[in-house]
Design a protein around this nucleic acid. Structure first.
Lengths: 129, 129
DNA sequence: ACCTCACTACGAAACTCTTCGTTGACATCC
DNA sequence: GGATGTCAACGAAGAGTTTCGTAGTGAGGT
């Protein structure tokens, strides 16, 4: 028991997680306001999803104040890696390398982005074995 | 109208698409048998999902024979890129570069894999005006 | 004390996904 | 030509997701 691996977040959950990562611990109203800059989602809808996410263990809730404060339980990078590993497994036959190469060739990257990736490669190659 | 962009395949649909990509056009029985090497999925379940995928436009169906023959409508790479673009949008703030870098640092790659990626980078950088 | 506002909780409705049992059509084999 | 087996189609059940209306509770102002 202790801590199982987190479940895959749905689309709405991911949108909320994005706000929590950006803002840090937030109330329902905070999240709702941040989300409604573009899309329109009802206040109770956000609340409900946050409640479900609490049950799932995706977020933790601080109930000491009247307006409960929610915080993402897992960091942005950890969640992103989880999602990538999941996608690699489901759609790339488990090969993260194939995923990377497809992602690279699938879009135009600017020269500076390519340089950044190349530097990352240098670092990885340096520490590999 | 004409042709809209394909919907995101679900997990089961992706498993079936994997078989179709590997085998080429196949009957329901073909897919079911290929899938049941490891997991256990009922025949009618595979049939039902293929019917739904036909409605969605993810596969095309040849009904000339008694045993209908299904074929993936979109290529493996196209679908993979679609999924990656989707994930980048939903979880990486639209930045495919962040996705790539996260995927690279999130796992150990062998030296040969790193080399392959580096070569791809060279190609991309060459043609990036 | 009372009114009003903000907040959480509850639950229902609509929708999708996954699964499979059943049915009816069709072909093939004695 | 009747039995057997394979096939697509239909429908339904159960779980999960997303949405929101309504109710209840508490806090703060007048």
């Amino acid at each position: 028991m202790t801590d199982r691996q987190p479940p895959r977040p749905t689309d709405s959950e991911l949108a909320i997680l994005g706000v929590l990562w950006e803002r840090g611990p937030s109330t329902v109203r905070d999240v709702h306001d941040a989300l409604n800059k573009d899309g329109a989602t009802g206040y109770t809808t956000v609340l409900k999803i946050l409640q479900i996410m609490t049950e799932k263990g995706l977020v933790v809730r601080d109930e000491t104040e009247r307006a409960h404060v929610y915080e993402s339980r897992y960091g942005e990078q950890k969640t992103q890696r989880q999602l990538l590993a999941d996608l690699a497994e489901r759609a790339f036959g488990g090969s993260a390398t194939k995923l990377v190469m497809q992602a690279l060739s699938g879009r135009k990257a600017s020269a500076s982005e390519l340089t950044a990736i190349r530097e990352l490669l240098d670092t990885l190659e340096g520490e590999a074995k």
